[in-house]
């Protein structure tokens, strides 16, 4: 049996009194894409942040390639270098050019020479349709372009897996397509992905597995057609019905 790239076992997290993650079990195999769906506040973002060690979990464990990463003795910087994270609001570094945004992590974090890093960054930007924008500042780019820079930035370190936190939620509708296209590209290249999303059609198309979160728990998980077309749990049915009524499917 192959070892999953990422595995969560009983992950629990509270912020003060509020229980945000309540015993999450999830396993992601190599080249697999898992979509996290669920209402705002259901714990999707927190789950991703816990995996990238941006938030410390209270209980349970997360494994990366079979090794526990949530033990206090583990070097979190080293773990984060093996994972890529893309934020909902892009979080590009506004004082740096596009190319510096993409190369900062691999130059400072991994000691890649700056010439090599720039070559690598340039190639990635070109792949995202951003050739010629290397010297621009993030605020000179559209939201969709910024998010593609953020994807390139996370991908530059050649991570084992990428965590995408609602990467299209902050975008104007007409800009969503280009970003989804970039994610689709990542999947085609075999990148292991966990992505939180409100785009059900995209989850259906790209994900190998869909997990529905409700009140910090994975209520239902399975193949996209199972969870999205024929949900077993009443909460999942209710969530999908509400999306349907809102015209979001």
């Amino acid at each position: 049996m192959t070892v999953p790239v990422l595995e969560l076992k009983g992950v629990t997290k509270s912020f003060g009194e509020r229980l945000v993650l309540d015993g999450i079990d999830l396993s992601v195999d190599e080249h697999e894409a898992v979509a996290l769906i669920g209402a705002s506040g259901s714990g999707k973002s927190t789950l991703l942040r816990c995996v990238d060690l941006l938030v410390e979990i209270d209980d349970g464990d997360v494994f990366l390639d079979g090794e526990v990463i949530t033990d206090p003795s583990v070097d979190e910087v080293d773990v984060r270098r093996r994972l890529g994270f893309v934020f909902q609001a892009f979080n590009l570094f506004p004082h740096m050019s596009v190319i510096d945004n993409v190369t900062l992590g691999i130059v400072r974090g991994q000691g890649v020479g700056s010439t090599e890093a720039v070559d690598r960054g340039r190639a990635l930007l070109e792949k995202c349709g951003l050739e010629g924008r290397e010297k621009d500042r993030p605020d000179e780019l559209s939201g969709g372009q910024q998010q593609r820079v953020a994807l390139a930035r996370a991908f530059a370190a050649e991570p084992r897996a990428m965590l995408l936190d609602e990467v299209t939620s902050a975008l104007d509708p007409e800009l969503v397509g280009d970003v989804l296209e970039a994610v689709r590209e990542l999947k085609l290249e075999g990148m292991t992905l966990i992505f939180a999303t409100h785009e059900m059609s995209f989850a259906r198309e790209v994900a190998d597995k869909v997990a529905f979160l409700h009140s910090g728990r994975i209520i239902e998980a399975g193949k996209p057609e199972e969870v999205l077309d024929d949900p077993k749990e009443p909460e999942t049915q209710k969530f999908l019905r509400r999306l349907l009524a809102g015209g979001r499917i």
Binding site: L54, V77, F93, L104, G109
Partner: peptide
């Protein structure tokens, strides 16, 4: 804080 998060996420140490 999101700037620090992004910096950590690309693999920088806190000092970096």
């Amino acid at each position: 804080q999101t700037q620090t998060d992004a910096a950590l996420a690309v693999g920088l140490t806190r000092t970096q």
